[in-house]
Amino acid sequence: MVYPLLKIESVSKIYPGNVLALNNVNINIDDNEIIAILGSSGSGKSTLIRTILGLTALNYGNIFFRNNNYKDKNYKMIRNSVATIYQNFNLVTRSSIIKNIILGDIAKVSSWRVLFNLWPKETINKAIDIIEEVGLNNIDCNKRVENLSGGQQQRVGIARALISAPDIILADEPVSNLDPQTARDILRLIRETAKKNKISVLCSLHQVDFAKNFADRIIGMKEGNILFDKPAKKILKFDLNKLYK
């Protein structure tokens, strides 16, 4: 039997103060699928991504990663197969570009190598290949991340996600801090590299036109509920009106 890559089953999350962030959410994600979650602020997009990463504990329901239940607290296996791209990039800004990219592989490198900064040759080579893939090849890779523009920083973030060869990339509003043109470029880059490397993507966005161009499938969320879950081409004006009413 073929299990879905990620199965989110009746998941609910209640924050202190009775704030219902996720209400009985069911999503199946297959391999090679590019999904956008649409919704306004506070609709539960970020909470969903955080629960998948195991950074926020869920109150009800189950999440299965290739039929392994999260309840077993086996986060290590999941985190090894999941990579994340963040809204605020979450890079170590005082470290170099290449160092930040290598950090994507940190869990797979032995302790003494981390301690003495002796990163394996193959990791470094992989990082250099990825730098080219994300279009940073004309920048000195020893430059500190804090000296890069927002778009360039997000490219480093994507590179960090790619180096661990994940099965799925979770992107939490990856372009909301970027200008529209850079945002389009970044989304195209995520889509192209994901397709090329056969990676699934779950990306939260709040611009409808970006989502339509970017994703194969769009999930609409409002106040913790899923309003629709359809292929991108079948999204109707009616759906969007419901979402942003």
Partner: peptide, 23 residues
């Protein structure tokens, strides 16, 4: 941010300290 990013990558505490806190 960077600490959470490394945590989500499955990094142990002392690795987070070394790579995301110390720099």
């Amino acid at each position: 941010g960077p600490q959470e990013a490394l945590q989500a990558l499955g990094s142990s505490r002392w690795r987070i300290i070394k790579e995301a806190v110390l720099p």
